[in-house]
Design a protein around this nucleic acid. Structure first.
Lengths: 112, 112
DNA sequence: CCGAATCCAGGCGGATACTG
DNA sequence: CAGTATCCGCCTGGATTCGG
């Protein structure tokens, strides 16, 4: 059965790196991962540390990273509503890869 | 002089990886780089190899990679209009980084 | 064979204001 | 402090058509 079936998403899905890039290839994920790699951060703390980001995009970025299992969100403190964002094991692992890529970029230039 | 000047694009630009990702973080660049890493390809050859891509996006992707110095475009043959796309030294160098990231991705899953 | 031109939908990302 | 809600411009990316 099937000589030509299941052509579908052959060469495209065959590139594993695409999946990750669709998540961390956006505008702010690298900066967030970078900061969280140092230590846990609160929301506004991240907001203030990342120059130019909006609270909206910070939320979206954090949600995306959380859903992908890179970031852990832990609310604490019933009163003034505090949340801490930290990297998961996968997040730290990914961060290492990004650091290597960043290393490469700073050496080989990032284009014109 | 200046205690608070030059706040500008601090933490954002401080992340070198962002620059590269803005180029290869799109939908098709990884697949193109992957194929060109094997050998030189013609335009339609790439078009046929990458399932789902449109000629338009292939053109844009190649132009982008060319402008960034990752891909070399060399036309040859006056008659039937042939072009060969190959990786530059920087391109091959970048491809190595991507391969490493792809390795990581295929091990650590790419998320749901 | 290798594109460029046009059209168009959808998503990313910014600005602003409001909530608990 | 930690978000949500709304609006809106822009760019990515797909489909189709035309040209060298």
């Amino acid at each position: 059965m099937s000589t030509d079936a299941v052509v579908t998403t052959a060469a495209y899905e065959a590139c594993p790196v695409t999946g990750v890039l669709r998540i961390i290839g956006d505008k702010w994920s690298p900066a967030v991962l970078r900061l969280l790699a140092e230590r846990g951060h609160g929301f506004n703390e991240l907001d203030r540390s990342i120059e130019g980001i909006s609270r909206r995009m910070l939320t979206r970025t954090l949600r995306s990273l959380e859903e992908s299992g890179y970031v852990l969100r832990t609310p604490y403190g019933p009163a003034p509503a505090r949340v801490e964002y930290t990297l998961t094991a996968r997040g730290r692992s990914l961060r290492e890869q990004l650091r290597a890529l960043g290393q490469w970029a700073s050496v080989h230039d990032t284009g014109p």
